[in-house]
Write a protein that binds this DNA or RNA. Structure first.
Lengths: 97, 97
DNA sequence: CTTGTAATCCTATTTAGGTAGGATTATATA
DNA sequence: TATATAATCCTACCTAAATAGGATTACAAG
């Protein structure tokens, strides 16, 4: 029985690229002890697609992405722009970077 | 000169569906006083695509989505699963809904 | 009401995503 | 080293995304 080597979680909490999503997804999946194919079956998405997502290819659709994130129990949250223009709102969530 | 009616920001900070992304993008865009076509030009994406994004169609790709979010100055962050399985990491942010 | 403009909707074309299936490579353990 | 299995890579097919362009509708202000 081969052991799944868990990949590290991102060091920061920000998610601002497909690559960040991929790192996150992979970390959660491996932490849960699921193989790529297992996860693909669970989430009901092609293993190739899941791999593309984990590899940070920005080709995956939003629908698929949220489907995967939901299945893995990952939640995203937003932060408004610094000071784009007067009237901009902001919700602090303990910044990291 | 017609006034742009700003759409409200989401009431919650979580982003767990294409619809949430759309609401967010539209709120930021209108808050910045940009028209849909203006924004499309700025971000360099077809106005139809931007509209699909704002309308919550999950068809838009991750790459396009982050391109738009970056251009609008919106940042996303993640929260690990509550207690998916033993060994899972957790970052408490006291969420409920 | 009229006018200017933003948003929505529509169509066609091109490109790329999503998928299944299998082959190949890497790697953890015995 | 041998072996089992996870991960990566590859091919091909079909559907859908992304786009440009224009028409239509909604709407705020004069």
């Amino acid at each position: 029985m081969r052991k799944l080597s868990p990949t590290p979680f991102p060091d920061h909490s920000t998610v601002l690229s497909p690559g960040d999503v991929g790192t996150l997804v992979r970390a959660v999946r491996t932490a849960a002890g699921m193989t790529l194919e297992e996860a693909a079956l669970t989430v009901q998405v092609a293993k190739q697609t899941l791999q593309n997502l984990e590899k940070g290819k920005g080709t995956v659709s939003l629908a698929l992405t949220f489907k995967v994130l939901a299945a893995l129990g990952v939640r995203l949250c937003w932060r408004a722009p610094e000071e784009t223009s007067p009237g901009a709102r902001n919700k602090d969530v303990s910044d990291a970077s």
